[in-house]
Structure formats: structure tokens, C-alpha cells
Nucleic acid binder design. Sequence first.
DNA 1: GAGTTTGAAACT
DNA 2: CAGTTTCAAACTC
Length: 343
Amino acid sequence: MDVAENGVQLAHDASQEPAFLANEEFNQNSPKKKRRRFEHAGETESCKRCNCKKSKCLKLYCECFAAGVYCIEPCSCQECFNKPIHEDTVLATRKQIESRNPLAFAPKVIRSSDSVPELGEESSKTPASARHKRGCNCKKSSCLKKYCECYQGGVGCSISCRCEGCKNAYGRKDGSFIGTEAELDEEEAEACEKSVAEKHQQKIEIQKNEEQRLDSALPTTPLRLSRQMVSLPFSSKNKPPRSSVFSIGGSSSGLYTSQKLGKPNILQPESKFERHSQIVPEDEMPEILQGDGSPSTGVKTASPNSKRVCPPNSDFGPSPGRRTGRKLILQSIPSFPSLTPQH
DNA sequence: GAGTTTGAAACT
DNA sequence: CAGTTTCAAACTC
């Protein structure tokens, strides 16, 4: 039924709406440019976008919407309402969803190196350095495919999962770690590993450095925010920064950021995340975690091929923003900023 | 590329 | 809260 309608009622609240994405209006309704995920081919620029047909991109089914970003050109969605033009609808809908589930837009994968929200106990058992917020409910995939949100996020299953026959390579529900991440790396590890395995194993050092910086700022905050969906490659290509370049858009970071600083952050106790988004100068640092992070550090990724895959949510939640080339780290954006109950 | 499978999200 | 339906991604052919 009408999602839009329902949402509208709340719309007035949207007045606070932050800057969503910068945008103009991109009708990408053209079904022609169907571009699935980054599959194998165009990992370069088209990392991933949604392909919604019925949800109008106003439900969590839509990855863009779920991630808190507007749909942009590469999307192949139809009847998309997840655009700046329909800002109020989007915000209203989000509110509605959040009212139902406050954590709906929170990062699904929570890095719990040290601070585990609630599943603290198992955190010690699970090897993975992160955990899925709600846990999966897989029955047939054995948590070995991307159907599994835990697996997809590169994290192990935890007791919160209700999966059956869990074989999650990143860590099973029962705590038995399959151990060898090596296993992973054969497969798509290439993709994810960059975020996961690699991180855990090789780049520990770098990670430390980085994390110190980032984490220090946000101890508990999921980094998922660091979505670097920048399509900067245009810099030289001169591709018109179609509004869609959400990201650095100056005012908008790509997420529907409502920067109400005083908001009660559910996950983030500290309300002081200013949007000092640390933007990594792309000129200098193309990709931090990417693997090729910095040659100088020497800790580079082990992957022979420097294929940069853009994991949907490598380690931080499904981020539509793939690390295309450079990354913009906005650590400050509240994960589910958008609409916090203003009361 | 079309069709199938899968599990989250949404709905009842 | 549990069962069912809807949905879009992941996957297979």
C-alpha cells in the first residue's frame, strides 16, 4: 500500500531535514541501465546500487534506502522515491520505519572489538571483530553465502543468530570458529577479505593506527559511516558530478544526515560527533583500508591482485558506497541519524 | 540474460 | 509473538 501516503503524515517533521544528498534530480528510471552489483566487471565505478521495482526504494528492501542514501544514477530502480526530490516522503517513511524499529537504520554490523552492545559475552568467543546486530536467521545457506547478513558483513554469527547449520566462516554461532580465514580468502575473500580477513590479519597495524584515529573518536560508533562513496574519478574525467555524487557534497554526506547534534543517540552515547568528517584527501590517500592503503606502511594487502572490490558492506554495514576510489570518511554521521525522535 | 533460491522486511 | 507474504539480492543456469 501506499508507503508514501503514510509517510506523508509525518512529513512536517521533516522540516528539519538535513541535507540529504545534494542532488538535483536524477531520474534513473530508465530500466535500461541495469547494472547489478559490482559483480566482476565494472568494479571500477559502478559498485552497487539498488534495483528495486516495487518498493519504490522506500523500504528496507532497498539497499540504498536502508543505507540511508539516496538512489543515484547507477541505480536501476523503478518508481524510485528515494530521491532528494521526495525528500519529505523519504524522511517520513524513515521515521515510520524507525518508529517501528529504532534500529532499523543502525548499522547491521557492529564492530565490537571492545565494546559490544549487548552480546558482550560472546564477543570474546567470536573471532570476528564485529557482530551482526540482530543476527541472522539462515536455514539453507549455512551462513556461507551472502544471503546471510552476518556472512555478508564479514562477521561471525553469534548467539543472537537463529541460523541452522551454521558454518559461517567468520565464526559460527556456537562459537567455534572455523578458523582459518584462509578458507575465506579463496573465494570471495578477495572481495571481502579486504575488509575482513585482511584487516584482521595483516593490517592490524594499520588498523590500529587508523582505528585509533577513528575509534578514538567514536568508540562505539560503527564505522559504517565511513562510507566512501565517492565517485571522484571524475576529477579527471570530467564526468559531471551529477548530483548524485553524494558524498562530498559539502552539505551532504550521502547519508541522510540530519545533523542534529543533540539527539539521543541510541548507539552513540556521545553526542558530539560533529561532522568533522574526516575527509581523506583523496589526492593523497585514495583508499585507506583498501588494501593498497599505503605502500609506505608496507602493510599492504596481501592480495596479489589489487583488485578493489567494493564489498557492499565490507565491514561496516552495507554500504552502498563502495570504495570506489577514494574514501571519504565521515565518522561523524550518526548512523541513523536521520530522524531521531525529537522528543 | 532469465529464472531460481534465499532470507530479511513487511504484513496479518 | 508467530505465521505468511512480499521483496530484492544472491545465486544458478
